[in-house]
Simulated scan of single mutants.
Amino acid sequence: MAPPGADDWDCVPTAEHPEPVVLVHGTWGNTYSAWSGLAPQLKEDGYCVFAPNLGEADITTRGGVQSLGPGVFATKDIALTAGDLADYVDAVLQATGTSQVDMVGHSQGGLLARQYLKFNGGAEKVGRLVTLGATNHGTTLNGLGTLDRTIGDLGLDLDPALDYVIGEAGIQQVYDSPLLTELNADGDTVPGVNYTAIGSRYDTTTTPYESTFLTAGPGATVENIVLQDGCERDMSGHDMTYSPRVIDLVRNALSPGSVEQVRCEPVAPST
């Protein structure tokens, strides 16, 4: 099920917002649960909004035990899912008659978007990328990932077995994974794309939270934003997609200056 405001394949982009926006959800999630706050706001702003469910795998194909439940996506090999994202973007471009989209990616969704940009032809098809708590440089998973790496250094590689427990995509997001090493080998960005990376000091999934931030390379721009800077009472953690402040920051990242007063509302920390 698409979130409200998304997946109107007859939508015609406006002169004010000529690029459609593709929203990419994170691990173990789906598009409805991730984007039912942001998608209707962007639609109200005048964007054409699209939000695919991506990365479906079952437990036999290394989707992890979470894949046994309903509505669970983004567990498949991220490199393969990036190919699915490429096909989806091409369909959006054809339907809307545009040459570029903008993207917003939460958690794995931001990392997946970067994989698409670098390896699947996305660099020329994306103008702006906004990441929310993305595992751009991997995560220690509050120490669990560190334990896994320590055991690996002792000669016991648990990752193949953990693919069937956590899911292949989850293991690929632990720091120093082969996928992350290859993705970040030549820098964080590709030329021609404007990046915004939003992170929270209360993130307990992408840890340390600073690992979400990016460094601009040639031909790209990066704005790194700590959610609590200027608004300590928004204590949103990893699941930040419903924060009014995050929603306004995304709107400004997609259309700079469109929100004159970014909201600062109290949000309790989540786990």
Rank of each mutant, 00 (worst) to 15 (best):
L117N: 00
T61I: 05
T60F: 14
Q94S: 13
I171D: 14
V259E: 01
D45M: 14
G37Q: 06
V250Q: 01
T27N: 13
H238L: 06
D188Q: 07
G230I: 03
L112R: 05
A161Y: 13
W35G: 05
G46F: 02
G155R: 10
Q173Y: 06
M240C: 03
P3I: 10
V65Q: 09
P3Q: 06
T131S: 14
Y242F: 11
S200H: 00
D153T: 10
G64T: 09
E182N: 15
A253L: 02
D58F: 10
G97L: 04
G145E: 07
Q173E: 15
S255N: 12
A74V: 11
A34E: 07
C11D: 10
G46W: 02
T31E: 12
G109W: 03
R149N: 15
D7G: 07
G133T: 06
G122V: 13
T96A: 13
T96Q: 13
R62W: 09
A82C: 06
P218V: 04
N142T: 11
G127C: 10
T221V: 12
G138S: 11
V190I: 08
L42F: 01
V262P: 00
C11N: 08
V267E: 04
A79W: 12
N53K: 05
I59K: 10
W28M: 10
Y202N: 15
A216Y: 07
R263E: 03
T221F: 09
A39P: 06
T181S: 14
T14V: 01
L23S: 00
A185N: 05
